[in-house]
Design a protein around this nucleic acid. Structure first.
Length: 849
RNA sequence: GCCGGGGUGGCGGAACUGGUAGACGCGCCGGACUCAAAAUCCGGUUUGGGCAACCAAGUGAGGGUUCGAUUCCCUCCCCCGGCACCA
């Protein structure tokens, strides 16, 4: 075995093409199982044959398998291994099914860790990142994942982000990107803005620091313009987990209701509120405004009480954004509005529980039928007027809780007597121009500006005369400068004159560049599409995108259920509207894999329960690691790490290895003649084909790789017990091994590739067709029929498949072991499930025991 | 609070459409091989009773539908995830 460095011949990018290539001798000898040697051998065979390169000219049907690309931290963790093993199994399975499989890989290479490493270790983020990528590629290859590395995407390289910048300028032209001064979530540790989706329980998703509120100029992308389509599109995704779809529906948060204008008594216009319960209009006893409402600002100027209240609210928001169990508080603004139907004068309050960012920032309060309004009214002595009668509502104490159910409207003028649903429609028509039906979403526009260095520069220029000017396509990419100095606080771009200072592309006068960079979710929102047109220099995508997209199978963790998957769906729809892709959704089928746990907890440095994949591969080999990952649990479930389980996986591979090499020396010739099989041979023959059929459903349809493996194990156990009697039996035994080697190839590709050669196979197993079950083998002459008496299993009976029920009945009654459960009781009826069971239902006493 | 998912041997899990509960693996127990150990192979392994054939109980708890329920329905307990002053 010799080690040599070789330049990878088919990687376009020189920086990533240095690879370790381990040349070794053909290991298919009957010696002990040596994973290191076998795996290096198999990997170099695949590389030489270029089996993982996907070509558009391939006449076979295309199949695009994609696993979520990793952040290049430098080392793979077990979550990656699980994710990428699932992807590779699916890819290899479909290749054997005769498809032209595309399975690419790349790196989500912008982001904070590189910057932190730069500050701590004085290395440039670019060099740190590229070194990590090189290390991780070695690890990925070592695990035997079949990627088309020609298509590798590294998001921090200008060749990639150039088109991202171009796309953003297009969004700007389409009115889908805009700049606005806005209250944002500020992470004081990471020194940057966070999107709503990145705030978890009031804390930054990365740093865990309590998020503060700040008001700054930000770039936003108008994802809300697609809110309805993003919601409806979920219905067209039957092969997505319900859980993920539900989370997205929740996040988009569609709510349809009515906006109603309440005229101010002072004649200075109206206050617009949003409600989903226009049927409770007669129950309104006050209006409540958010502390940030523009009208409240006005009032605060004149009213010291309002001013003090608003100030205290701001304190709350900066200091304790996470505090949620707050009491509802408020003050009157002094304003009065007129009820649009009764003309009654109603007070307007500022209230802590009304948020500016939803609806109109103002509500009509109906204390009798809304719990929050109710608590507030109780606290400040405001009237509570029940206007909805619900069944069984009589006994309820109206002063305690609000009745939030729908029912029959009462005490409401011409709305009285209507159902809630009818009353809502009627109310809108009664209100005329003062009301309109509207739909609101919880989903906010996506704030994409980050005040960080290591990200894709936002390609915008600010000119005193021309204002905001997008960088023209001819000037792209705006390259992120390297060799910058880090202070550890602000982005180096802020003070880097050579970057910041530029000329206006429109008028040529001195201007300055935007120094913010994109949220890294921007890069990961369209990489799946770029893999198709990875080397297109002129355009973001080309015709090859039509060949491969949408992705047939996407695999990744649930943690991306709303963030990444929602943004990618949004980008896909934008790309579709721009004419670059033709489908509505980017990912046809989604598998969201569970976490890898140890001792019941997620592996993490802080808990000290991390298992390093590299150590496992070094000790047991890649095949063992892959087999354990796929066998220990179904893919959606969390997987409990078990060193003993790993050893069990290795034991199975060794057993397979030994059985092949034992059988290989036995003489056997010619094709299998089923007629010549012995009795036990026939049984094994059937089991083999049941296994083939079962594994196909388990991998191809159900994606329960654990049960597929269990079926193969059963078949191998049966083979190990099998003692050939006839020459045909020996042919069968070898057939079983050849088939098993095929069935396991997607999961443990290296050892099966080697065993295929030992078994005399021609060419590469990786490009072999998947076995097809023989219907003749599956046909049965006899089945074991379960015999039940009153639903309890009392025995079984071997019956011919064509045997009629009456004959079976009399056999049961004639069998003393079965009949004794029936004797002394009257048979009421028989339930016969052909091929499965027969149940005798009796009435009356029967002897027991 | 609202919306989901789940609870099966000592452990990971299986049972796909209501039809033999515990496949497969781990662990454990016994045996073979060995001077011995490791590795490997064979057998056993839900619980209780019995020498055994066998019998009884058993899928978080309780009830229901059914010839038959881990699977369907109702009530409750516990665990996990998502959302949450969203009007």
């Amino acid at each position: 075995m010799s080690l040599r460095l070789s330049a990878c011949p088919y990687t376009a990018d020189r920086r990533s093409c240095i690879m370790l290539s381990i040349m070794s001798a053909d290991p298919s000898t009957p010696d002990a199982y040596d994973p290191g040697n076998i795996e290096a051998w198999a990997q170099s065979r695949w590389r030489e044959a270029r089996v993982f390169e996907a070509h558009e000219s391939d006449p076979r049907p295309p199949y695009y398998v994609l696993s979520m690309f990793p952040y290049p931290s430098g080392r793979l963790h077990m979550g990656h291994v699980r994710n990428y093993t699932i992807g590779d199994v699916i890819a290899r399975y479909h290749r054997m099914q005769g498809k032209s499989v595309l399975q690419p890989m790349g790196f989500d290479a912008f982001g904070l860790p590189a910057e932190n490493a730069a500050i701590q270790n004085q290395v440039s983020p670019a060099r740190w990142t590229e070194a990590n990528i090189a290390a991780m590629k070695v690890q990925l290859d070592r695990l035997g994942f079949g990627y088309d590395w020609r298509r590798e995407i590294v998001t921090c390289r200008p060749g990639y982000y150039r088109f991202e910048q171009w796309l953003f300028t297009e969004l700007y032209r389409m009115g889908l990107a805009y700049r606005e001064r806005a209250w944002v979530n500020w992470d004081p540790v990471d020194q940057t803005v966070l999107a709503n989706e990145q705030v978890i329980d009031g804390r930054g998703w990365r740093s865990g620091a309590p998020v503060e509120r700040r008001e700054i100029e930000q770039w936003f992308v108008r994802i809300t313009a697609y809110a309805e389509e993003l919601l409806e599109g979920l219905d067209a995704l039957p092969d997505w987990p319900e859980e993920v779809k539900r989370m997205q529906r929740n996040w988009i948060g569609r709510s349809s209701g009515v906006e109603i204008d309440f005229e101010r008594c002072d004649g200075a216009g109206a206050i617009r509120v949003f409600t989903t319960r226009a049927d409770t209009l007669y129950g309104v006893s006050y209006l409540a405004l958010a502390p940030e409402h523009p009208l409240v600002r006005e009032c605060a100027r004149e009213d010291a009480g309002v001013r003090a209240f608003v100030d205290s609210m701001r304190q709350r928001e900066t200091r304790e954004a996470a505090l949620e169990t707050q009491e509802k508080r408020g003050v009157p603004t002094g304003l009065q509005v007129r009820h649009p139907l009764t003309g009654e004068s109603l007070p307007v309050w500022v209230a802590s529980f009304v948020v500016m960012s939803y609806g109109t920032g103002a509500i009509m309060a109906v204390p009798a039928h809304d719990q929050r309004d109710h608590e507030f009214a109780n606290r400040y002595g405001l009237p509570i007027r029940p206007v909805i009668r619900v069944p069984h509502g009589e006994g309820r104490d109206p002063s305690g809780t609000a009745v939030t159910e729908e029912g029959i409207v009462v005490d409401s003028g011409s709305l009285s007597g209507l159902s809630s649903e009818e009353a809502r429609v009627r109310a809108v028509s009664l209100l005329g121009r003062q009301a309109r039906e509207v739909v609101h979403y919880r989903l906010r526009d996506w704030g994409v500006s980050r005040q960080r260095y290591w990200g894709c520069p936002i390609p915008m220029i600010y000119c005193i005369d021309c204002g905001v000017v997008p960088v023209p396509a001819r000037d792209l990419p705006v390259v992120l400068p390297e060799g910058v100095q880090f202070t550890g606080v602000n982005s180096p771009l802020l003070t880097l004159k050579s970057f910041r200072e530029t000329a206006c592309p429109r008028c040529g006068k001195p201007a300055h560049r935007e120094t913010d960079t994109f949220d890294t979710f921007f890069e990961s929102s369209w990489y799946y599409a770029r893999f198709a047109s990875f080397d297109s220099l002129e355009t973001i995508l080309d015709d090859r995108a039509h060949h491969w997209l949408p992705v047939n199978q996407y695999i990744g963790g649930v943690e991306h259920a709303v963030l990444h998957l929602l943004y990618a769906r949004f980008f896909h729809k934008v790309l579709r509207d721009m004419g670059w892709v033709r489908s509505d959704e980017p990912f046809t089928r989604l598998l969201s894999q569970g976490m890898v746990l140890k001792d019941g907890a997620k592996m993490s440095k802080s808990k000290g329960n991390v298992v390093d994949p590299e150590a496992i591969v070094a000790r047991y080999g890649a095949d063992t690691a892959r087999l354990f990952m796929m066998f220990a649990a179904p893919p959606e479930q969390s997987l409990e790490w078990s060193e003993q389980g790993v050893e069990g996986a290795q034991r199975f591979i060794k057993r397979l290895w030994r059985l092949v090499h034992e059988r290989v020396t036995e003489p056997c010739e010619g094709p299998l003649d089923p007629e010549a099989l012995s009795g036990s041979g026939k049984a094994l023959w059937r089991l083999l084909h049941e296994t083939v059929a079962g594994v196909e459903t388990d991998i191809g349809n159900r994606q329960t790789f654990n049960t597929a493996i269990a079926k193969v194990m059963e078949c191998l156990n049966a083979l190990a017990r099998f003692e050939p009697e006839e020459p045909a039996d020996r042919v069968l035994a070898k057939d079983v091994l050849i088939t098993i080697v095929h069935l396991l190839h997607p999961i443990i590709p290296h050892v099966t590739e080697s065993l295929w050669r030992s078994l005399g196979g021609e060419g590469l197993l990786a490009s072999r067709p998947w076995p097809v079950p023989d219907p003749a083998a599956l046909a049965r002459e006899e089945v074991e029929l379960v015999v039940q008496v009153n639903g309890r299993r009392r025995g079984s009976l071997r019956v011919r498949v064509e045997e009629e029920e009456p004959a079976i009945r009399s056999r049961i009654l004639a069998d003393p072991a079965l009949a004794r459960f029936i004797d002394g009781a009257r048979v009421e009826r028989w339930v016969f499930v052909p091929g499965r069971l027969i149940n005798v239902v009796t009435r009356g006493e029967r002897p027991s025991g």
